[in-house]
Structure formats: C-alpha cells, structure tokens
C-alpha cells in the first residue's frame, strides 16, 4: 500500500514539472512511466477482486460458531467471546435507530438480572455511529455492559447484520443459537436460554439448535 501511495505522490510532484523547472532529460517520459506502472498495479488489484455479492456472509449463522467481535472497546470491560461460562447476547445497535432505543430498557433489565446470577451478559456492537454519541446514549439511558466499536463495519458484515437492531444469542460454547431481528425483549431471551439450560449439558446445543 505504502509503495503505491509513495509512487503516486511522486507522480503528483513530477506531473507539475513541465512548468517551472529547467529542462532535464525527458521528465514527462519518467512521469508517464510512473503513472503507467501505478495504473497497471491498480488495474491488477481491481481485476483480482471478488464481487461484492460473492463476499457477503451467509445470512443464517444459527448453529454455527460465532464470528469474532473485533472492534475497539468503547465502553466497559474488554471481553472474549470464545472463553466464557456464560451466555452472551451480541446486540448490534445505533443511537439513531428508534427500535434500538426502545429495546434498551429490555436489554438493561436482562443484563442486570443476569449479572447478579453470573450466567449471561450483553455485548453491544455499534453500527454506523459515533463513539461520542454512544457514550452519551449510555450515560442517559443506563447500562454498564461492554460496547465495542463497529470495526469499520466488518463485524456486522461477518455476522450478516442487515439492519439494526439485531441481536444474537451465543451459547457458552460460542455457538449462535438464536437471531433476533428488530427489538429484543428480556422475556424472549430468557425463554431461549431456559430451553437449553434445563437438564441437558450445553455441549448438545449444536444438535438442539
């Protein structure tokens, strides 16, 4: 990447050369060659790319290992999705989205209840929003769970998020067991967890899901 940028900056400089500098041996040719090489590289890069349609993550991740959540931590403690003895609700949200605002109290109730018992937690992923707005939002509406940045939209792409709010319930073993499109309720989350947490060991979630 750096080489490309360097070459091109050089081109910007030398392309203006025909004007002011004393005549040297064929600077235009040099500039043309540099531009040509940079453009050839660009064409090469463009020609080897896959099309967007082929890259989109599969929409249905239920029953599969949860993708990583890579963004910077905006609020709360760092966390690790893989190693845990707790259920995790991965919630994609934005402060500009009204259903997200509406589901927030539900998530708060869920998080507070389960924080006491230590068997489930909430992680929110910012979707196309500013960190400062997110901090204001949590200050105003409460909630102490971890919020991570959007990671340039990559996390949402990996999880196949189409539109916020969207929430995923991830089992302690790191398997996605349920997807909630639109606002999620505490009751719905508890219901799904109770299906799995009854008598059977957690390892059977893959079959169950």
């Amino acid at each position: 990447m750096t080489t490309v940028a360097d070459d091109s900056t050089h081109h910007d400089g030398s392309a203006g050369a025909p004007v002011g500098r004393p005549r040297r041996a064929r600077p235009t040719l040099v500039a043309a060659v540099v531009v040509g090489v940079v453009m050839a590289l660009l064409v090469l890069v463009l020609a080897t790319r896959e099309r967007a349609g082929e890259r989109t993550a599969s929409a249905d991740l239920i029953g599969e290992q949860a993708p990583s959540v890579g963004g910077d931590v905006v609020l709360g403690q760092p966390f690790d999705l893989g190693a845990s003895d707790r259920w995790t609700v991965v919630n994609f949200f934005a402060t500009w989205c009204v259903p997200c605002i509406e589901e927030h109290p539900e998530l708060r109730a869920f998080a507070e209840e389960h924080a006491e018992r230590g068997d489930a937690r909430v992680v929110s992923v910012v979707y196309d929003d500013k960190s400062s707005d997110v901090r204001d939002f949590f200050e105003k509406n409460g909630g102490t769970w971890t919020v991570v940045g959007s990671d340039e939209g990559r996390t949402a792409l990996d999880w196949g998020v189409a539109k916020v709010p969207e929430s995923y319930l991830v089992s302690p073993t790191g398997i996605i067991v349920e997807r909630f499109v639109g606002g999620v309720t505490r009751q719905a989350l508890d219901q799904v967890i109770s299906l799995y947490d009854q008598p059977v060991a957690i390892t059977s979630t893959t079959e169950g899901g």
């Binding site: 025909p18 064929r26 235009t28 040719l29 500039a31 043309a32 060659v33 531009v35 040509g36 064409v43």
Partner: peptide, 14 residues
C-alpha cells in the same frame, strides 16, 4: 485508455 494515453504522452510529451 491508460495505456494509450501514457504511451502517447511518454512518447511525445517531452
């Protein structure tokens, strides 16, 4: 287009 342009400019430009 790039090849033709760059070629012509490089060839004639100076």
């Amino acid at each position: 287009i790039v090849a033709v342009t760059v070629g012509l400019v490089g060839w004639r430009g100076d």
